[in-house]
Structure formats: structure tokens, C-alpha cells
Design a binder for these strands. Structure first.
Length: 259
DNA sequence: ATGGTTGTTTAACAA
């Protein structure tokens, strides 16, 4: 089963690009981030016509996540637990039952800039809540995948120029430490594991010719519980999508799991 | 050093 994550930066503006990519990449499950619309505005009919069930957790103007799946989406849950007052739409999870049940979590982790400040505090708080939910998945020995835009550059080799990112919320020591605490619970970074070299990027800024100069960063990740990692057969980044007309600033990241 | 771009929504804001 092919499971992907794709920050599409506005589903309305990106619908043709999304449908083109779905047709050629043929993922079984997709976690979308930054749909930037309310549930009712999601182009459900077009995506269903492409062969996907749809579960949406939207928000007006910003954020917003969704899950697409060829198989039914079971036990859908919306919103990251741990703060009833958090109204930002950044988390959705569901179970997809192939030969084995797979819990897919789609997440859009807060950007956190400018740091320091309230947005950065929110990011670190959100990462604490993410770690709690992730620990529960591990405790339940779930075959699960955390798929999303983590807004974290894990290591210096995950960006073109570490000095340029030194003060950024995506790369600050506290951000990397919080991400490491999550990984060290027992998750496998699928892309890093199968593509250990440098220059594996998933985001290129729209500005300053970042794409033609390959000034990218790796911030979209697929983290697997041990039960899922045991079934990992392939992983990749569809970087060429970034060079097309009207692209998102992110590109799809995917894993193949024998489930 | 600074600015550069895009999407949503309509003057900023977020990224």
C-alpha cells in the first residue's frame, strides 16, 4: 500500500495539480495539508471521481487537513488531543484496512515563526501534544504512520544552508530537540532510512529562485511505528512536481508498506 | 543587508 503526504498550499488553487499527481502516482492513501478551506468547500466530488474516499478537517482561509483513500476511511478522528481550546485544523487520523489495519495520521505541525514569541510557544506546545498521541500509538502497538508537514528540519544535511536557517523556528535547537524526543520514542523516519544521503528536500520557497538553485529543506516526513517500519518496502519524494506549472511549494512524500 | 512569491481574502496575514 502506497501512503503519501502532500502539503498542497490551497486545494482550490491546486486541484488540477492534485488530480494530475493522483492519476500518475496512484497512491492508496494521501494526507493533505494546507487545504485552506472549510469542509463544505473541499472539492469532494472531483476527488471522489478520481477514486478516493474523503475525510476533511477544514478551516476558513488557513491550515486544514484531509485524508484521501481508495479503501474506506474508518474511525476518523479530527483534532490533536490535549487542548480543547485549540481551534486550528491540523490533525486528522483514520484506519485503512488492507490485509492489516493501518492507522494513518495526517498532520500539519505549526510553523512557529517568528521565534521567540506566541507562535513559537504554540508550536512547542503542539509538539508536546503530538508526542503524547504518538506515545499512545506505540503503547497500543499500532501499525501506524505519522504523515505530514512537520515544519521541522531534523538535521543540518536536511537543508541547503544550515546558517541561513539557524534562527528559524523550523531549525532552532528546541524544535530539533522536541522532534528528536518524538523519534526516540521508537519511530522510523522512512525517507531518511531508505535515502540517507544529503540533498533530499521536500520544500522550496517560492522566492529568490529556491527551486532552480535547489535551495530546499526536508520538512515533510513519514514516521512509522515499529509495526509499520517492519513492513516498509520503499519510500520517496516526488520532487519533479515542484517544477510544474502553478506548483505547491511542497512536494509529495510517500512510503510503500506491505500491509 | 534586503527582497524576493503565493494563496486566501480583499489589506493584511501566513508561510
Amino acid at each position: 500500500m502506497k501512503i503519501a503526504t502532500y502539503n498542497i498550499n490551497g486545494v482550490k488553487a491546486r486541484l488540477p495539480a492534485l488530480l494530475d499527481w493522483l492519476a500518475e502516482a496512484r497512491p492508496d492513501v494521501v494526507a493533505l495539508q494546507e487545504i485552506k478551506c472549510v469542509d463544505e468547500a473541499f472539492p469532494r466530488a472531483e476527488v471522489e471521481d478520481a477514486g478516493y474516499n474523503v475525510a476533511v478537517h477544514g478551516q476558513k482561509g488557513f491550515n486544514g487537513v484531509a485524508l484521501l483513500s481508495r479503501l474506506p476511511l474508518e474511525d476518523v478522528a479530527r483534532g490533536l488531543p490535549g487542548d480543547a481550546a485549540d481551534e486550528q485544523a491540523r490533525w486528522i487520523e483514520a484506519t485503512v484496512s488492507g490485509r492489516t489495519a493501518l492507522r494513518v495520521c495526517g498532520l500539519y505541525l505549526p510553523n512557529g515563526n517568528p521565534a521567540p514569541g506566541p507562535k513559537y510557544d504554540y508550536k512547542l506546545d503542539w509538539m508536546d501534544r503530538l508526542r503524547a498521541r504518538a506515545a499512545a500509538l506505540l503503547a497500543a502497538e499500532e501499525t501506524a504512520a505519522l504523515m505530514g508537514d512537520f515544519n521541522v528540519i531534523p538535521e543540518p544535511e536536511d537543508c541547503h544552508d544550515p546558517r541561513a536557517w539557524a534562527e528559524d523556528a523550523l531549525f532552532l535547537p528546541a524544535t530539533r530537540a522536541a522532534y528528536r524526543r518524538l523519534l526516540n520514542l521508537g519511530f522510523t523516519d522512512a525517507v531518511r532510512t531508505l535515502h540517507p544521503g544529503p540533498k533530499v528536500y521536500t520544500f522550496w520557497d517560492y522566492q529568490a529562485g529556491a527551486w532552480p538553485r535547489n535551495h530546499g529543506i526536508r520538512i515533510d516526513h513519514a514516521l512509522l511505528t515499529p509495526q509499520a517500519a517492519d513492513r516498509l518496502t520503499a519510500a520517496g519524494v516526488d520532487a519533479e512536481v515542484r517544477g510544474r506549472d502553478k506548483p505547491s511549494d511542497h512536494v509529495p512524500v510517500w512510503v510503500e508498506l506491505d500491509v
